[in-house]
Design a protein around this nucleic acid. Structure first.
Length: 156
DNA sequence: GCCAACGTTGGC
DNA sequence: GCCAACGTTGGC
């Protein structure tokens, strides 16, 4: 099993929004970066665990856990000319963009802020804290995943 | 709102 | 294939 971190702007789609979806599951649309797409299309498997990260907000950080709930399939928002994710270069015959379904697992009582993560030496190799990394989907090591979950539960 | 970092586009 | 211009991300 692999571990991931996926960023979302809470104003656009928060973990609370995911919780409220039918089956607490939604498709992760709008990814328009090749590296992030390749992660979803080539590497994600049903059951992989995801750190749900809120970006571009008051307190950026990991707010809970989700899991991959489907294999990748074409991101249909790219086909719709009225969608903000419309991309005329992606067609139903030759889709350029993909997405997976993501299912809610849990919301942390205490989220683990980016600020906090930066103070933990064992987390200093996370791609999240490396300079200039703007990827919205990234891999996470198992021990990093465990440390963050533990931080959420115990504060340590 | 600023701005650094980075990805993408497109002219040549 | 280079690289300048431009757009986006995301922390602060």
């Amino acid at each position: 099993m692999r571990y991931w971190l996926m960023k979302s702007e809470p104003e656009a789609f928060s973990i609370d929004d995911l919780m409220k979806m039918e089956n607490q599951t939604d498709h992760w649309d709008g990814i328009r970066n090749y590296q992030a797409r390749n992660f979803m299309r080539d590497d994600m498997r049903v059951g992989d665990k995801i750190l749900f990260y809120h970006s571009n907000c008051e307190e950026p950080g990991v707010v809970g856990i989700a899991e991959v709930a489907s294999e990748a399939y074409p991101d249909f928002t790219a086909f719709k000319s009225d969608s903000k994710y419309y991309d005329p270069k992606s067609t139903e015959e030759k889709p350029r963009w993909f997405m997976v379904d993501v299912k809610f697992v849990e919301k942390f009582k205490e989220s683990v802020s980016l600020k906090k993560i930066k103070t933990i030496p064992e987390l200093s190799d996370m791609k999240l804290v490396q300079k200039g990394n703007r990827l919205s989907i990234m891999t996470v090591e198992k021990n990093e995943f465990d440390i963050i979950v533990n931080l959420a539960k115990t504060g340590e």
